[in-house]
């Protein structure tokens, strides 16, 4: 019970915190730029994921890290 209340309180705190952050809709000029998107170049990101999936024991994080290749 205590734990549920704690998690609930944390969630409300986080949401309240988030709601005070951010910008108004007309302040999104910079955020709307292509270079400010979280993934700027999908092909480059997919290429890197594929290379490192083939050569290292980790994958994913940014997105799905599953199979799709016999290289590992």
């Amino acid at each position: 019970m205590k734990r549920t209340v704690g998690v609930g309180a944390m969630t409300i705190l986080l949401c309240t915190g988030c709601s005070s952050m951010g910008v108004e809709p007309w302040e999104r000029d910079v955020l709307a730029k292509q270079e400010m998107q979280l993934t700027t170049d999908e092909i480059e990101a997919a290429t890197d994921d594929h290379i490192y999936f083939s050569k290292e024991a980790s994958s994913g994080g940014r997105g799905f890290g599953g199979g799709g290749c016999g290289c590992n």
Binding site: L38, G60, F64
Partner: peptide
């Protein structure tokens, strides 16, 4: 070989110049 991936994420605009994101991923092969 079967793989299940689950990704939970949150992204947050902090200011006009700063955006952040955090993801948790679970993968079962």
């Amino acid at each position: 070989k079967d793989v299940l991936d689950i990704v939970l994420g949150v992204s947050q605009v902090i200011s006009r110049d700063l955006v952040v994101q955090a993801n948790y991923s679970y993968s079962k092969s």
